[in-house]
Write a protein that binds this DNA or RNA. Sequence first.
DNA 1: CGTTCCCTTGACACCGATCAACTCTGGTGG
DNA 2: CCACCAGAGTTGATCGGTGTCAAGGGAACG
Lengths: 236, 236
Amino acid sequence: MFVAKLELAAPLDPQDREALRIVCDHVRQVPALRDIVSEGDNPEHIHLMLQGWGARYKIVPDGGRQITAFLIPGDYCDAHIAVLRQMDHGILALTEATVASIPHAIFDDLSLRSPKLTRAMWWATLVDEAVLRAWIVNLGRRDAYGAVAHLFCELHARMRNIGLVEEGSLDLPLTQEVISDALGLTPVHVNRILQRLRSEDLIQLKSGVLTILDPAALQRAGGFDSAYLHARKRGD
Amino acid sequence: MFVAKLELAAPLDPQDREALRIVCDHVRQVPALRDIVSEGDNPEHIHLMLQGWGARYKIVPDGGRQITAFLIPGDYCDAHIAVLRQMDHGILALTEATVASIPHAIFDDLSLRSPKLTRAMWWATLVDEAVLRAWIVNLGRRDAYGAVAHLFCELHARMRNIGLVEEGSLDLPLTQEVISDALGLTPVHVNRILQRLRSEDLIQLKSGVLTILDPAALQRAGGFDSAYLHARKRGD
DNA sequence: CGTTCCCTTGACACCGATCAACTCTGGTGG
DNA sequence: CCACCAGAGTTGATCGGTGTCAAGGGAACG
C-alpha cells in the first residue's frame, strides 16, 4: 500500500520497488494508546502505518496536548529521522495498529542510491506539509463548527484515496477528546458541535463509524477544497 | 546563502554546488505587498528568498487571511511545484524582496541526477514541516500571549541562524495586522499583547526593529524549545 | 451487575472579537 | 517649511464563542 502511494508521485524502478517490499516485511503490532515513537527518541527504525490509526502530538508545558496529524494506513510516521536526528514530537497509536519497521540505515542507503525513491519520499513530505497548512487555517481562521466540518472532509477524502470509504461511511475510531486535541477545542464543545452537525443531517457518527450524509453541505460548512491534498488517483 | 543552508543537511558535491550557484543568477525584484506566486499558479520557476520578508497565506471563503509561514532570506518559496503540480496557497512579499528564480525544468533535471541535492531539499522541507507543527501547537493550545511570545522566539532563532541578529535585535517589518493573520487573532488584540510584553520588559518593538530584552523569560512565556528547528549551526 | 470510559447536559466565566473613535508617524506636494 | 493625508498603532465599551466545572447517563466489558 505504501509503495502504491509512493508511485502516485513518480514510477519507481523495479529494484526500488522490490527493495521496499522486502524491507517492509518487518511488521510490528502496537496496542492502542501506546507510543509508536516518543518525542526525543532517536529511533533505529522508521515506521509505516499499515493498519489502524495513529496521531502525531506535542505536549505543551501546562499539560495540554495538541495533535498535529492523524496517520492512516499508507502514511509514514517518521521518515524524518532518516534526515533529521531526533523526533521533535511523539507518535501514538490511537487504535491497535500494525506498522512496518525499516532499519533506518538501510533506508538511508537506499535513498542515497535512488534519486527516484528520495524524490517520492520528498513528494510524500510535501503533501503532508499541505495538510499541515490546512490545519493551520482550520485552527486560525475557522470557528469550531467549520473546523470540525473541514476535518471530517479531510479524513473522508484521505480515506477514500486509500479505498477505505464505502457508501460515504468510514471507520473513525476517535474519541471526542482526541478530536478536541486535534482542533484546539475542549471535548465538551466538540460534543456540542457534533450534535449540531447531526441535527442538521450533515453527518452520522455512531460507534466509531462516520457517515457523511450531505457531502456538499459539509464541504460548504468547512470551506473545504480538496485541491491541497494533491490526490493523483486514477479515477479522481 | 541558500546553498550554505542546504549544506547544513549534508555536504553537496562540488558540481551540485556550482550548478546551484549558476542557476541562482536569475534574480528578480518584487515590490512590497505583491504576490510572488499566487494560489492556483503553475509556475515555470521555483523561487528562493534572497532578501526581504515573505509570507505563505491562504484566504478563507469569508475573506479572512491566514498566514502559514514567514519566509526569510535563504528560504525556498515553492520547491513544491517541482514535485506537485499546483500551488495550493499564495506567497506574498511583505517587504520589497529580491528572489532568485530557477526554471523548474532545470531544477527537476538537477534533482533527478543528484540524490544528495534531492535529499538536501527534502531536509529543508522536513524542517519546514517541523515549523508548521509548532505553529499548530501555537494556534491550538496557547493563548494569545504565549503565541506571540513563541512566534518572536521562533523568528529570533531563525534570523540568528542566518546571521541577521545583532545584540538581540532583528528587523521585523511586520505590521500588527500581519502578525494577527499569522496567529489567528485580531490586530486589536495583538496590539494589547504587545503592550503587555513591552510593559513587562520582555521585548522592545519600534519602527520595525524587534529587540528581545529578556530571552529566558520570553521563552518561558511562549513555552519555546528550539529543538524543533533542528538547527545545525556551527557554534550552536 | 458493577466498573470504567465515554458521551451528554447545564450554568457560568472569560478570552478575544467587534465596532468605533482617536492618535501618531512618515511621506507628499504645495 | 508647513499642511495634508493615508496607513499604522492605540484605546475603550460591549458582545459572543469557547472554556470551565460539575453532575448525570449509557454502553461495553469483565
